[in-house]
Amino acid sequence: MNPQSLYFHPDYLDAVRAGRKTTTVRFRDPVEAGPVRLVFELDEEVSVPGVITQVTEKTVARLSEADARADGFRDLAELHDRLRYHYPGIGPADTITVVHFRPVQ
């Protein structure tokens, strides 16, 4: 069985490789724990093997500063800004998925 794929904006590749980004927040993008291909669309597709270790659901309003730092952001305000960029129209009452992952060698 092929692992699931999790697509990322190319800006996050270095942070994922360096271990500064260990979660991603997803909206209406179902994922499950287990093997994963972390995929980045650059000039060509770059894929990093990984594993999703935990998936939790919460509302946008319940995201914390710790969630923001694990996602590679300076603070919660920056995470909220990026969520609005990636998901225009997302609001505080919307349910999101926090996906915990790590690259594997």
Rank of each mutant, 00 (worst) to 15 (best):
S64Y: 02
S64N: 10
S64P: 09
E65P: 13
E65C: 13
E65G: 15
E65Q: 15
E65M: 15
A66K: 14
A66L: 14
A66P: 09
A66V: 14
D67R: 03
D67H: 04
D67T: 02
D67F: 01
A68N: 05
A68F: 00
A68C: 07
A68I: 04
R69A: 10
R69H: 10
R69K: 13
R69Q: 13
A70R: 09
D71K: 02
D71M: 06
D71E: 11
D71I: 03
D71A: 11
D71T: 06
D71C: 05
D71H: 02
G72W: 00
G72N: 03
G72L: 01
F73W: 04
F73G: 01
F73N: 06
F73A: 04
R74E: 13
R74N: 12
R74G: 12
R74I: 12
D75N: 11
D75H: 03
A77G: 10
A77I: 08
A77Q: 11
A77V: 09
E78H: 07
E78V: 08
L79V: 04
H80N: 11
H80M: 11
H80I: 12
H80T: 09
D81I: 03
D81V: 07
D81Y: 12
D81C: 08
R82I: 10
R82A: 12
R82H: 11
R82N: 10
R82T: 08
R82E: 09
L83A: 05
L83R: 00
L83G: 00
L83P: 00
L83I: 03
L83H: 01
R84N: 08
R84S: 09
R84K: 11
Y85D: 15
Y85L: 15
H86I: 06
H86M: 13
H86V: 06
H86P: 00
H86A: 10
Y87I: 03
Y87W: 04
Y87H: 07
P88N: 10
P88Q: 12
P88M: 13
P88C: 14
P88E: 12
P88S: 13
G89I: 02
I90R: 02
I90H: 01
I90K: 01
G91E: 11
G91L: 08
P92N: 04
P92F: 01
P92Y: 02
A93L: 12
A93P: 11
A93V: 14
A93T: 15
